[in-house]
Write a protein that binds this DNA or RNA. Structure first.
Length: 649
RNA sequence: GCUGAUGUGGCUCAAUGGCAGAGCGGCUCACUCGUAAUGAGCAGGUUGUCAGUUCGAUUCUGACCAUCAGCUCCA
C-alpha cells in the first residue's frame, strides 16, 4: 500500500502500482473524464504512470496549462495520424502544442489546400470517434532507428540519432496503427478531443533553419468543449478587426505606394500628427531626465561601420550607396542602420573626465534597414523608421543606477500609453554556438551578461531568457509586445555594451589619472515610433486617448445657419491648442455624428438654436454618448485637464 | 529570401476568351434637419506592370511589382 497526498492535503491509501488515471476514477467520474495529465510530486506526468511509492498527486484538467498542453499535443498526433492515413507518402517531422493550439510539420510534395484541410479534419473526426487509447512504450535507440527507417521517416531518424548516446531509451506513443516518437505526456485516448479545427497551412523550415528544407505546416486548435472553441475563434476574428494594417489604412493614418516600395509607408496627416505628439512627449520627458539631444547624419562612410562591426556583421541589412565591394579603395557611403557609432563620434569630440559621466545622448533617429522582402508588415516591420534612440556613457559604479533609470523611463512611457500591462521582458543573450553572429570573446560575453543578470535580478525584473537574441555587440533587455495576430515584437530595448567603446577608442580620465573605457547603455525609451503607433492603433482600435487623438474635437452645426457660431467656437478652441474642426456639410445631425463616431473623434460639440441662445455647447463623447449641455468654459476646462493628465477612457 | 494565397474605380465586392457592374464614398442640386445613414442626378476603370498565346486577353501562360498569413530574420 502507498499513501497518496491529494488536493487539499487529503491522504488516501492505494495499492502500489495503481495509475494516476485509476486514482482519478476513484475520486469521481467527472474528474476521470476531464483528466488530461497529472503532477506527481510536482512533476508533470502521463496519467498512466504507475504510482509505486508515497507521493503527492495532482490531477490536471484542460483548465490547467499543462493539461491544455497535453490535450493539444494529443490533437497534433491525431492530425499526424489523419495525414498519414490520407497521404501515406507524407513524412513526419515535429508536432508540438503551442499557445492556443498545436501544429504539425510534414514533408509532402503538394502543399496543403483548404480542401485538403477539410478532408484531413474529416479523418481526424473518425480517429476521435474511434477513441483510440494512447499507449506509451520504449525502445532502445537502435531499435527505434530501425523502426523509423523501415517506415521511411527520415526526420524521426534524425531526431532519434541526436537523442541516442544519452543512455536513455526512446519513448513512443501508439494510437491504433500509428506510432509516434514522443516524450509525452498525453491524454488517455483520442476520444476526448471533442472540439478541434485546422486553422491554416503554411511553409516552415525543418528545425527552424532557413538553409534546410521547407516543410508544410498545419496549424490547428483544440478544446474540450465546442462552445469554448467557437468563443476562442470568434475572439481571434474580433482581434483581427483591430489589425493596424487594415484599420490604420481605413482611418487614414498611413498608406503605401507601389512606386515608393516595400516597407516604406507614407504617414498621412493623422499618423504623422500622432507621431509628432509622441515625439514631443518623449523628447520633453528625456530632457527632464537629463538626456542631451544630438542630431547626427543619416549616412556615413563605410569606415565608420568597419570600426563598429556593422560592415562585417550587418552589411546585408544596410543600404549601401555605391559599390560595397570597392569600399577598401574608394569612398562608399551607407545609410545608417543604427545610431550608435554616430553618437560615439559626439562623445569623441573632446577628452572626457569621470566628472562628465554619465553622459546621456538621445536622438529622434531615422534608421534604414534593408529587411528581406518577406519581413515587412504594416508599420510594425519597415525599411525606414524613426526611433527614440539613446546612448549613455558611464562608469562601472554608475551602471546599475543608470540602467534602472532607463528602465524607469521606458515603464513611464508604457504606463502613459496604456501598454504596460501588455508587455513582457526578455533577457536576450548570445548563442555561444553561433560565434559568427557576434564580436568579442567568451570572457567578455560572460562578463557583460553576468553584469546584466545581476542588475535584472536586483531590480526583480520577471524576464524569460532568449538565447541567440542578443545584439552582435552585447546582451539586451527587450520589452516585448504582441500584435493582434499574437506575433511578438520588440517594442523597447535596453542594452549593456562594453565592447564598442574600446573599438572606438572612447575613454575617460578616472580619478587616479588613468584612462578607462566607459560602459555604454544603448536604449530606446518608447521604441520606434511607427511600431508604437501600430500597436496603439491595435490597442485602442483607432480610438486614441484625447491627448494623442489627431483630431480631438469636432463641431457639428445642426443647420447651416449655425455654422458661423460653430466657427467662432472652433477658433477659440484652436487658439487654446486643441486640434478641432467643424463639419460644414449640409447634412443631418445624425449623419454628422455617425461620421465623427466612425472617425473616432473623442468629442463632438453640437451647436444649434438652443446652444446659441444659452451660450452653451451640447457635448457628446465618443464613448458614453450624450453628456448634455455645458458652458464653453466648463468644456474647455474638462478637455484641458484630460489632455494634460493624458487620461485614457 | 522561402511556402502558400491575393491583386477589378477612393473603399467593399460582382462578372466575363467578344462594349466591365453594384453598394458605400466623391461631386452637383434640393431639403435646414437635435445625438450613428434625407432624396435625386452626375462623374469616376488601359481590370497591379510587362511580355507571350489568340482574329480578339481584364479572363489563359510566364516574368516582375505590390499586398496578406506563416517560416527565417529583426526595432
Amino acid at each position: 500500500m502507498i499513501q497518496v497526498k491529494l488536493k487539499g492535503d487529503v491522504i488516501k491509501e492505494y495499492d502500489s502500482g495503481i495509475t494516476a488515471l485509476e486514482v482519478a476514477k476513484s475520486l469521481g467520474m467527472g474528474l476521470y473524464k476531464a483528466a488530461c495529465v497529472c503532477k506527481i510530486d510536482g512533476v508533470v506526468c502521463d496519467l498512466r504512470t504507475p504510482l509505486t511509492a508515497d507521493c503527492s498527486l495532482e490531477i490536471l484538467t484542460f483548465d490547467d496549462p499543462d493539461g491544455k498542453h497535453a490535450f493539444r499535443h494529443t490533437a497534433s498526433h491525431i492530425l499526424a495520424q489523419a495525414v498519414k492515413r490520407l497521404y501515406p507518402e507524407a513524412k513526419l517531422a515535429i508536432g508540438p502544442a503551442i499557445e492556443n493550439g498545436f501544429y504539425y510539420d510534414f514533408d509532402i510534395d503538394t502543399p496543403f489546400t483548404p480542401e485538403m484541410l477539410e478532408q484531413i479534419e474529416g479523418e481526424m473526426k473518425k480517429i476521435v470517434k474511434e477513441a483510440l487509447p494512447l499507449e506509451r512504450y520504449e525502445l532502445e535507440p537502435d531499435e527505434a532507428i530501425a523502426m523509423m527507417e523501415k517506415k521511411g521517416e527520415i526526420y524521426k531518424v534524425e531526431l532519434i540519432q541526436e537523442h541516442a548516446g544519452k543512455g536513455e531509451k526512446i519513448s513512443f506513443f501508439r494510437q491504433g496503427e500509428f506510432d509516434e516518437l514522443c516524450a509525452g505526456p498525453h491524454i488517455p485516448d483520442t476520444g476526448r478531443v471533442k472540439a478541434f479545427k485546422l486553422t491554416s497551412a503554411t511553409g516552415a523550415y525543418w528545425r527552424g533553419d532557413s538553409n534546410k528544407k521547407m516543410l508544410q505546416r498545419i496549424y490547428g486548435t483544440a478544446f474540450t468543449k465546442k462552445d469554448e472553441m467557437e468563443a476562442y475563434l470568434a475572439s481571434v476574428e474580433e482581434a483581427k478587426k483591430r489589425d493596424h494594417n487594415k484599420l490604420g489604412r481605413e482611418l487614414g493614418f498611413f498608406t503605401t505606394s507601389e512606386m515608393i516600395g516595400q516597407g516604406l509607408p507614407i504617414l498621412l496627416p493623422k499618423g504623422a500628427r500622432v507621431i509628432q505628439l509622441l515625439q514631443r512627449f518623449v523628447e520633453d520627458e528625456e530632457q527632464r531626465r537629463g538626456w542631451l539631444l544630438t542630431k547626427t547624419p543619416y549616412m556615413a562612410k563605410s569606415d565608420l561601420y568597419k570600426v563598429s562591426g556593422h560592415w562585417d556583421h550587418y552589411r546585408d541589412g544596410m543600404f549601401v550607396l555605391g559599390d560595397a565591394d570597392k569600399a577598401d579603395e574608394e569612398e562608399v557611403f551607407a545609410l545608417r542602420p543604427m545610431t550608435c557609432p554616430f553618437q560615439y563620434q559626439a562623445y569623441l569630440n573632446r577628452a572626457r573626465s569621470y566628472r562628465d559621466l554619465p553622459l546621456r545622448y538621445n536622438e529622434t533617429s531615422t534608421l534604414f534597414r534593408n529587411e528581406a522582402s518577406g519581413e515587412m508588415h504594416g508599420l510594425i516591420r519597415v525599411r525606414q523608421f524613426t526611433i527614440s534612440e539613446g546612448h549613455l556613457m558611464c562608469r562601472p559604479d554608475q551602471l546599475e543606477d543608470e540602467f534602472r533609470k532607463c528602465l524607469e523611463l521606458a515603464i513611464y512611457m508604457l504606463k502613459t500609453l496604456g501598454l504596460y500591462e501588455d508587455v513582457s521582458y526578455r533577457f536576450s543573450q548570445w548563442d555561444p554556438n553561433d560565434r559568427e553572429k557576434y564580436i568579442g570573446t567568451d570572457e567578455q560575453w560572460d562578463e557583460a551578461q553576468g553584469i546584466m543578470k545581476k542588475i535584472l535580478d536586483h531590480l526583480e525584473i520577471p524576464y524569460k531568457i532568449g538565447i541567440g537574441e542578443a545584439a552582435f555587440y552585447g546582451p539586451k533587455l527587450d520589452i516585448q509586445i504582441k500584435n493582434v495576430f499574437g506575433k511578438e515584437d520588440t517594442l523597447i530595448t535596453i542594452q549593456v555594451d562594453q565592447m564598442l567603446a574600446e573599438k572606438f577608442g572612447m575613454e575617460y580620465v578616472d580619478t587616479d589619472g588613468s584612462k578607462k573605457n566607459p560602459y555604454i547603455i544603448h536604449r530606446t525609451s518608447i521604441g520606434c515610433y511607427e511600431r508604437t503607433l501600430a500597436l496603439l492603433i491595435e490597442k485602442y482600435a483607432g480610438a486614441f486617448p484625447l491627448w494623442l487623438a489627431p483630431e480631438q474635437i469636432r463641431l457639428l452645426p445642426i443647420a447651416d445657419r449655425h455654422q458661423p457660431y460653430a466657427k467662432e467656437v472652433e477658433a477659440r478652441l484652436s487658439a487654446l491648442g486643441f486640434r478641432v474642426t467643424t463639419d460644414m456639410r449640409s447634412e443631418k445631425i445624425g449623419y454628422k455624428i455617425r461620421e465623427a463616431q466612425k472617425e473616432k473623434i473623442p468629442y463632438m460639440l453640437l451647436v444649434g438654436d438652443k446652444e446659441i441662445e444659452e451660450g452653451n455647447l451640447s457635448v457628446r463623447r465618443r464613448s458614453g454618448g450624450d453628456m448634455g449641455s455645458m458652458s464653453e468654459g466648463d468644456f474647455t476646462a474638462l478637455a484641458l485637464r484630460e489632455t494634460a493628465e493624458k487620461v485614457i477612457w
